[in-house]
Each structure stands twice: as C-alpha cells, then as structure tokens.
Design a protein around this nucleic acid. Structure first.
Lengths: 120, 120
DNA sequence: TTTATATTTAACTTATAGGTTAATTAACCG
DNA sequence: CGGTTAATTAACCTATAAGTTAAATATAAA
C-alpha cells in the first residue's frame, strides 16, 4: 500500500488518534499509552493499534529494558500536510461558497454557464 | 463513526484521492470521474467510492438530467487541516532534523534561516 | 413507445481490520 | 532460581470494505 493510504488508514481510528495526541505531549511506553483504553479494550488490542501507527511511520518504538518507549515521528504528518495543501483553497473558500449559495437562493443563473457535453 | 474517522477512512484510498484531485479542477459527473479507472474496476465500484466520499462529506452530488455532477466540499478538508495543526511542530521539527543532518554532511548552514521553537 | 445513456441497487465473494483469550517472550528483582 | 512486570504472539471470531456481475431505475431522444 502507498504511504499516504497507509497513513490515512492509521489516522482513521479515534483510539489511534488519541494515542498520537498523548505522544504529542511527550514520549510514552506501551502501558502508559494503554492506560486510558484498558476499560474498553485489552492490551493486545493496544499493541495492535501501536503496530498500525508504527507500520504507517507515524511513531517510532524503541527498547529500554522491558519497556518500549514510543515517540511521534513527524515525517508522515508532513506528507499529509503537503497532500492537503492542494485543497487549501477549498477549505478557505467559505466566503465564495456563501456567495454561490446566495446566488442560488436569489434565483440567479449558473455560476459558470457550463454546458453538458452531449455528444450529438 | 465520528467525522474525522470517516474522513480519514475515505482518504485512505488512492482511487478516491484521485477522484478528489480531479474534482479540485472542477465539477464532474460520475462517468467523467470513472473514466480513468474503468480499466481497473467496474462502474458500480466507482459508484461505491463516490458514495464513500459523499457520506464522508468530502463531496456533494447533485442531479442534472441523468447526470450526477459532483463537486468538492471544503468543510471536511478544513476539519482535517484543523486537526493537523496540533502536529505542525512535529513535522516542522523533523525539517530541523534534516537541516541538522545536512549540516553534518555538507558543513553547510541553514536551508532557510527559519527558527523553530526548541524546547528548553 | 422503444431505445440509448447514466447511474444505482442487489446479491454475492473475499480479504482484512479490530477485537478477544491464552500462551509466550523479555528483562529485571529479591 | 523463581517471581513480577512489560509487551508480544498465536489462534480465533466477526463485521465490513472493496470488488464482482446482473438487474433495475431515471432521463432523454428517436
């Protein structure tokens, strides 16, 4: 799977995003990261979530005695950020959108006079 | 499912991202969007991908005769962008790392003179 | 009314994501 | 060594994502 797909897939889970949020406040080992979730899921489930994050490259896991300190890795975030750039105009466009909306409710014509290409 | 999870899940597929890229260049109906993919998948598969994008709120599908013109919807992109903000420091920090690395390798200094918040 | 075009729905298959429990590995400690 | 803590692996279950083909629907056109 391509990097971006893997990254987005890893981000598509609230447990994993919460783990990233925790890591954004500093290094933490597996049981630290697991603590908030052990009411809802088992430790192996946590291990799996961390594996997904690690495989996606969003975190790095190291070894320190019997602990596995994890930290956030910025590169994949940068990939996402760069991919997002091409859409910036769309999320910043809210003002244009309002304008377009107002045109429709006030009985105005096409934004662009676009014609459907009917082939003959 | 929460919005962000749904959005990320929708983005975790290269076909769907390609469709969004196409839509970022302007409105398109289903068969327009399908064209580049019909070598690889059936039309119903395309319909399903569009459904995922629509359900996630990334696109809006309207009706015009027998066509279904689609356009990009900025709001979900904004959600992602806002969520990403809290990690900005991490992807900009690894840029620092690269810079530091390059310094060691080439004996050169700053790529951009930019300063980032360093802890401590 | 029939035919053509655009798109969706239905029914089905297969792979995998995300969870479980039980067992295992790893490192430290008394 | 034997026990304790930290984390992973194995084996399994279930829901669903992503694709298929075939049939249905919607609109326009002849």
């Amino acid at each position: 799977m391509d990097h971006l797909s893997q990254t987005f897939a890893a981000l598509a889970d609230p447990t994993r995003r919460a783990m990233l949020a925790r890591l954004s406040r500093g290094e933490a080992n597996v049981s630290d990261l697991a603590k908030p979730f052990l009411k809802d899921m088992s430790l192996p489930a946590v291990t799996k979530h961390l594996k997904v994050l690690e495989t996606a490259g969003l975190i790095t896991k190291t070894r320190e005695a019997q602990w596995r300190p994890c930290r956030l890795n910025g590169e994949r975030f940068r990939d996402v950020s760069e991919w997002m750039e091409q859409y910036r105009v769309f999320w910043e466009e809210s003002f244009d959108r309002l304008e377009a909306y107002l045109k429709t409710v006030t009985g105005k014509k096409n934004l662009k006079g676009k014609k459907h290409g009917r082939k003959k």
